[in-house]
């Protein structure tokens, strides 16, 4: 929808993943254009998180490929380690917020920036004394509205703040693509609105593309350019949201209301 000329940034081709007998991801393909937001919905155990894990390198697919498209053309990232994929501009957040509990919010973000700038083994300066890093940290704090909790430790944050910080960590690394696993789960109504605004503004102002796994259909309607429905590892529908939502009513009737 928004991507001018629809420049593709990320693609998955016929991905498969088995856990024992469970076919967690069954022949899933997708493409993501610059600035596009693709939402994935589906019941518990549908394979949504597993799909994000395949893309971000946390687990390796049994079959299929994942590609990142950059200035230097297509890069095959199938089975590459997470840090490699991170450096190619694909960041992610986690269903259960994944932050550093023993560090302050500021230090959490500093870490993300320093890791991205590959300065992690330096010890000539205090970690709070790199001006270019501090500039990015302030910027991220501002965008994610974390000013009030900036000096709190990760362990002292509320669930909503943890969710925001988790995404902020990935965003601090200037990603072109963000994979968000249920960014609004467990959030209050106003926090949800804030999260929706945040996703939309990152897309609008930074041209970030998203894959968003989401249960809340209001959020999905609000942000998505494309919508994928997964069930039992397979793709049931993959189209524009209004098309899918009409279809999905048919599908849920067919599956006894189980899908959404």
């Amino acid at each position: 929808m928004s991507g001018e000329g629809d420049k593709v940034v990320l693609g998955g081709v016929s991905l498969h993943k088995w856990f024992g007998n469970v076919h967690a991801v069954n022949n899933v393909s997708f493409t993501l254009s610059q600035g596009e937001i693709l939402s994935i919905v589906g019941p518990n155990g549908a394979g949504k998180t597993t799909l994000l894990n395949l893309v971000s390198g946390i687990i390796k697919p049994d079959d299929g490929r994942v590609y990142v498209y950059g200035e230097r053309g297509r890069i095959d990232i199938t089975g590459k380690p997470p840090y490699y994929i991170t450096f190619l501009g694909v960041g992610r957040s986690f269903q259960i917020p994944n932050i550093f509990d023993g560090l302050t919010v500021r230090d959490n973000i500093r870490f993300a920036v320093l890791a991205y700038k590959k300065r992690m083994t330096r010890f000539n300066r205090g970690y709070g004394f790199y001006e270019d890093v501090e500039e990015i940290v302030d910027n991220v704090v501002n965008i994610f509205r974390l000013e009030e909790v900036i000096d709190k430790y990760g362990s002292e944050l509320s669930h909503g703040e943890r969710k925001k910080l988790d995404i902020a960590l990935s965003f601090a690394q200037s990603p072109r693509v963000l994979l968000l696993d249920e960014p609004t789960s467990g959030l209050t109504y106003s926090e949800k609105l804030e999260m929706v605004d945040l996703i939309k503004s990152l897309r609008r102002e930074r041209n970030v593309s998203f894959i968003v796994v989401e249960h809340d259909l209001d959020v999905v309607r609000e942000v998505s350019d494309m919508l994928m429905v997964m069930y039992d590892g397979s793709v049931l529908a993959y189209d524009k949201p209004d098309v899918v939502i009409q279809m999905s009513e048919v599908i849920s009737a067919y599956l006894g209301g189980e899908v959404l």
Partner: peptide, 28 residues
């Protein structure tokens, strides 16, 4: 005291708190 206040020391602490996240954020 100084080392744990440098990027290296921050890296130590990040690994202590959450090695998976540290790795996902690009750290070896």
């Amino acid at each position: 005291w100084w080392i744990v206040r440098t990027p290296l020391g921050l890296g130590f602490q990040a690994v202590r708190d959450n090695p998976y996240r540290a790795e996902a954020l690009g750290m070896d």
